[in-house]
């Protein structure tokens, strides 16, 4: 019974492999035909950024990025609904604490740099937010119970900041008659920068809060019971 099931799965995987090889082969046979890269480069001056990846993420396909931020937010809401966060690690010793005081400001600085440089070179909100989140993880490992995050009320605002600014900008451009997330040409760069800044803060907060791994607000209740 079990071997029959394994046989079926094996045959399935083999078929999938053959299909994948066929897809790759046809892609190679067709060659580099008309792709979207040229169109993406052609529209670049109007977006106000010179990094094509950032242009695609925030100008051409802003919806995708908005929904990615919403997915992150939904994931954090899921984590918060799982239960109370565990109490943090014990306070760091002198050596680790010294490293943390050195590394965390550097991570924040590097995050800001990646955010700014995303306009014209590899970088951007997700990478910068990941660095901010990493700073939170390091602080949590060094004994900070809240991973360096502000109190809950501020945390909630920070977590929704990315989606909120994104949607507000979209509604504002709609109000101007350009359509949802169709940036006016002169403002494009600054709108993208505003969205990316909010997204960076939101992603950093979300990732650090995800590492805390539970809802932060019933902590007093839990420690009061035990």
């Amino acid at each position: 019974m079990k071997s029959a099931g394994g046989l079926v799965i094996g045959a399935f995987v083999l078929l999938l492999a053959i299909w994948l090889l066929w897809v790759v082969q046809t892609a190679i046979d067709i060659g580099a035909g008309p792709r979207l890269a040229e169109q993406a480069f052609a529209g670049l001056p109007a977006t106000g950024v010179s990094n094509p990846v950032t242009a695609v993420l925030l100008s051409y396909r802003g919806y995708d990025t908005l929904l990615e931020l919403a997915v992150l937010l939904a994931a954090l809401l899921g984590i918060w609904s799982l239960g109370a966060a565990s109490p943090g690690f014990q306070a760091a010793g002198a050596v680790l604490q010294g490293m943390v005081t050195l590394v965390v400001p550097l991570l924040i600085l590097a995050g800001g740099y990646l955010l700014w440089v995303g306009g014209h070179a590899p970088g951007g909100a997700f990478q910068a937010g990941a660095l901010l989140g990493a700073a939170g993880v390091v602080m949590r490992l060094a004994g900070d119970e809240r991973a360096g995050l502000p109190p809950l009320a501020a945390q909630r605002w920070l977590v929704v900041a990315g989606v909120a600014v994104f949607v507000l900008v979209g509604i504002a451009t709609m109000g101007l008659g350009a359509g949802f997330l169709a940036y006016p040409i002169g403002w494009s760069k600054w709108l993208i920068l505003a969205i990316e800044t909010a997204a960076t803060v939101a992603i950093g907060t979300t990732l650090a809060a995800a590492y805390v791994g539970g809802r932060p607000w019933s902590h007093a209740d839990v420690s009061g019971q035990s």
Binding site: G133, A134, V137
Partner: peptide
């Protein structure tokens, strides 16, 4: 693809 490499190292591997 340096953008993807950055994201993979920071998010995929790190966080």
């Amino acid at each position: 693809a340096p953008d993807v490499a950055l994201a993979e190292a920071a998010i995929g591997a790190g966080l």
